[in-house]
Design a protein around this nucleic acid. Structure first.
Length: 254
DNA sequence: ATGGTAGAAACTCTA
């Protein structure tokens, strides 16, 4: 089973990139973030024509998460159950015995801001829910844009980024606590190139200079981690014209 | 020197 995640930063703008990528890599499932459209404008038919079913938790203008799959799955939920959130950031799908979760963690804007407080609150709600999910679903995969770089090696300039949003102690502790429930960062199961990142700011020619952060993750329950045989970041789409600022991450599970 | 770019939307917010 090949599963992937990609923050597309507007699905309608990136649809051609996405369709090309799906045709080239043929993942069984693809988790999307920042679709930035409501359900009515979701390109369901175009994706179906490309061989993918979809479930979407949309929102006009901002956020929006989806899961595409070759075979039809069963929608598990939209949003974190019991956590009232006007922002569309979570969707879950049961597919061939695996529970897949697509997450778009709040960015947090800047440490100490209201949005930062919302981010920490949101991560705590996610942790509580995933604890219950893990108890019920031994095959659980949580994929998405976590907006947190876990370690110094996930940041191009860790000294400059230390304490900044996306790499503050509080955010790292919150992500660590989620991983500590019994999840594995699939990317770190394997040897990886130095300076591997999944997001580069559009500004300052950051991609050309590889000034990136690894903030998009595939977290696997123990059972899935044991069967994971590969996990890579595909930087190729970041080189295209009008790219998303994120690259897809793909994991293969036997 | 808080700059720079991109997307959605509507003239500003979010990232």
């Amino acid at each position: 089973m090949k599963i992937a995640t990609w923050n597309v930063n507007s699905l309608r703008v990136r649809l051609a990139h996405l369709l090309d990528w799906l045709a080239a890599h043929e993942p069984d499932a693809m988790c999307l973030q920042e679709t930035k459209c409501d359900d009515e404008k979701f390109p369901r038919e175009e994706l179906l024509a490309a061989g993918y079913c979809s479930v979407h938790h949309g929102q006009r203008g901002y956020n929006g998460v989806a899961i595409l799959s070759r075979r039809a799955g069963t929608l598990a939920c939209r949003g974190i159950p019991g956590f009232t959130d006007p922002q569309s950031r979570v969707i879950a799908l049961d597919l061939d015995g695996v529970r897949l979760v697509s997450v778009y963690v709040p960015n947090g804007q800047s440490v100490g801001s209201e949005k930062f407080a919302y981010k920490l609150c949101w991560l705590e709600a996610l942790r509580g829910w995933l604890a219950a999910e893990l108890a019920q679903h031994p095959r659980l995969a949580v994929l998405g844009d976590f907006n947190v770089a876990p370690e110094p090696r996930d940041v191009h300039d860790p000294q400059a980024w230390e304490g900044q949003v996306l790499f503050s102690a509080a955010e790292r502790a919150a992500l660590d606590s989620i991983v500590g429930l019994g999840l594995t960062d699939a990317f770190r199961l394997f040897a990886q190139p130095e300076a591997s990142y999944s997001w580069w700011d559009y500004r300052m020619a950051a991609f050309r200079r590889n000034l990136g952060l690894r903030i998009d993750h595939v977290l696997l329950s123990r059972e899935l981690a044991q069967r994971c045989v590969g996990c890579t970041i595909d930087v190729a789409p970041r080189r295209l014209d009008r790219p998303s600022d994120h690259a897809p991450v793909i994991a293969t599970i036997d």
